[in-house]
């Protein structure tokens, strides 16, 4: 397997008590897969993403990418943060070039690469602008271009479209699908929007809180260029809703 998550647990100390943000999570992800992590707030989606990306140390278990134990963030993968993480003192162009600067490329080569990805996200006219002069959707595009410019193998995305309006969000979903198909990246995408997950994912990992764990993994066998209002789409969505409702049954049983 390309990415192997084995029996991963992550504890946080909160007020002297140990809190299990992740408990015994195991997951395999294949190369080129579009995987969504879905679940309510606090179920450990970000924690799991950070564990795979190498930003957080795990308490037990192991994470391997391409057979290599993950020990810290790697330049081969990039993370898109929820609030974009653009550098406000740099233009769009030099934001996109941030990850390229240490590669000892000639200026022209570097500009060629950044131009290509700025083009790809449709911001050619704005490459000399500063982030604060752009809308939220445009800023997220810059972040995507910056992430792609280093040609990563895996893209980690933590609720990347959470702050966008419905229409921009739908556009960005199409755009990321297109980019994913064209560049064959592995994408791990966190969301708490069920429809977004059904629209984007090859597989959906459904998580539950307290302790953070995987509740179910659903394969989405819809073709690409998905239609949001066909029966198959609704079926998968309803299926997921059912899985989330099981949580209530659990709770009822617990109280009985």
């Amino acid at each position: 397997m390309y990415i192997e998550v084995k029996n991963v647990s992550k504890d946080f100390k909160q007020h002297g008590q140990i809190f299990k943000a992740l408990s015994d999570v195991s997951l395999d992800i294949s190369k080129g897969e579009f995987l969504c992590l879905l679940g309510p707030s606090g179920c450990g989606k970000t924690t799991l993403l950070n564990a795979i990306a190498g930003f957080d140390k795990i308490s037990s278990g192991s994470v391997k990418i391409d057979g290599q134990e993950v020990k810290g963030p790697s330049a081969r993968n990039t993370t898109l943060f929820q609030n974009y993480g653009l550098l406000p003192w740099r233009t769009v162009q030099s934001n996109v070039e941030l990850g390229l600067e240490s590669r000892k490329l000639a200026k022209i080569e570097m500009h060629e690469i950044s131009d290509k990805y700025i083009n790809l996200v449709g911001l050619d006219a704005f490459k000399k602008n500063y982030p604060h002069q752009l809308s939220g959707g445009m800023q997220q595009r810059v972040a995507i271009a910056r992430a792609l410019a280093v040609d990563p193998e895996i893209l980690f995305m933590d609720e990347p479209f959470g702050a966008l309006d419905v229409i921009t969000r739908a556009n960005m979903q199409d755009e990321i699908t297109r980019i994913w198909q064209e560049y064959k990246k592995t994408i791990i995408f966190v969301t708490h929007d069920i429809e977004e997950a059904v629209y984007l994912a090859d597989r959906i990992v459904i998580m539950a809180p307290n302790p953070g764990r995987i509740k179910a993994v659903i394969k989405v066998s819809l073709g690409r260029g998905r239609d949001r209002d066909v029966k198959e789409f609704f079926n998968i969505r309803d299926n997921i809703l059912d899985i989330f409702e099981m949580k209530n049954h659990d709770a009822i049983e617990y109280f009985l």
Binding site: P73, T78, F81, G85, L87, L98, G99, S102
Partner: peptide
């Protein structure tokens, strides 16, 4: 902190992190 994460993300060295971020 997000800027420091970005620096880690793009594998900037310590010195680059100081001067560029």
């Amino acid at each position: 902190k997000i800027y420091l994460k970005v620096a880690q993300n793009f594998a900037l060295t310590r010195f680059e992190t100081l001067t560029k971020i």
